[in-house]
Amino acid sequence: MTREYVYQQMNRIFRNVFDDESIELHDETNAEDIEDWDSLEQINLIVAIENEFEMMFDMAEVAELANVGEMVDLILKKDSNE
């Protein structure tokens, strides 16, 4: 799985969750950059990401994430450990 592929899927997931086709994710993108990104949408994002990449995170991993780049890093790390 490449970083480009993960970003492609993540862009699709974010656009779908927030119903906003203009979203373009970057490593630094965080909840302050997307108006509707609140705690409920955070749950929806994590669930959609877990389903898309067929992996499960634990609470601590999710709590530590500061931005999209760290989420992508986590996905790639989990994928390489499988």
């Binding site: 955070q42 749950i43 994590i46 669930v47 877990e50 389903n51 995170f57 634990d58 609470m59 999710v62």
Partner: peptide, 11 residues
């Protein structure tokens, strides 16, 4: 149907 422990959410 689904359990997501990371966010304590069930479907």
């Amino acid at each position: 149907y689904e359990l997501h422990p990371s966010v304590k959410m069930a479907v």
